[in-house]
Amino acid sequence: MTQTLPADVVARAQALGLKARGVVEGLRIGDHKSPYRGFSVEFVQHREYVPGDDIRHIDWKSYGRSERYTIKQYEQETNFIGHVVVDASRSMLYGEGGTNKLEYAKLIAATLAYVIIHQRDSVSLGIFDSAWRFRLPPSSQPGHMQTILQQLESAEPREKTAIAPLLHDLAQQARRRGLVFLISDCFDDVPSLMNALQHLRFQGHEVTVFHVLHPDEIGFPFEGMTKFDAMEERMHVLTRPHLIRPTYLRAVQRYLDELTAGCRANRCDYALMDTSRPLAQTLTEYLARRLQGP
């Protein structure tokens, strides 16, 4: 990945923006809702006055109509923290050129980070395989983007995937509710992964799973005698792939179904990112869908 993001991707993502769909906790007033109730511009509800309340918040118009003291409550808007978590395990190395899963994932991560920073929100970056390989604390400074790009550029896969423990770790550490973007091929145990997502959700995070898959992994288009060398393990399989294709496809479909169902159950966004499709298209689809709401 170059440090220059594709212009079309950035332009489209920027146009659509990234708004926190749920409630996020911000340090300063921004575009996003905050769980902290106060007296701001966004009216929420009326309540009966009780002694001790600031009389400045009494709604006199309501008193004129009903002769009862009521207090006006407002929702406070704030900026959010986006946690971009990128899987850099060896399995992500599959694919050539633009269809390489890791490159695709890096582009997604960079684009998301750019959009978040551009909205003056904070973004953190985590790169992992079986452990955290790199973590960048959240920041909304424009210079933060450069650091993110550098780290993404230098990310090198070393180990096999182990997502669930790391997400648990993230859930533990990120106390403040925010947005978590998991970019991975998710070749891990699905129940464990779901468990981790649930943990994040329990902590109040809004979670989006970018499931990056190469078209070969989805369609299994091989013919003839083929030796499959495992990328994350020392093993290989010699077979005639066309004879096992239906079985393979059934297994993949079962896995995808399980994954999407799990995400839905945990109210996480799930986006299947086929690396054969242009990133601009897939990301735009996701952002547009997000805009439309759940």
Binding site: R90, S91, M92, L93, Y94, K101, D185, F187, H214, E217, F222, G224, M225, T226, K227, F228, D229, A230, M231, E232, E233, M235, H236, V237, L238, T239, I244, T247, Y248, A251, V252, Y255
Partner: peptide, 15 residues
């Protein structure tokens, strides 16, 4: 045979 490095080994092994 031709050799292919493969990531989705789990599904292949299942098949």
């Amino acid at each position: 045979y031709r050799t292919v490095p493969w990531a989705a080994m789990k599904f292949l092994l299942d098949s």
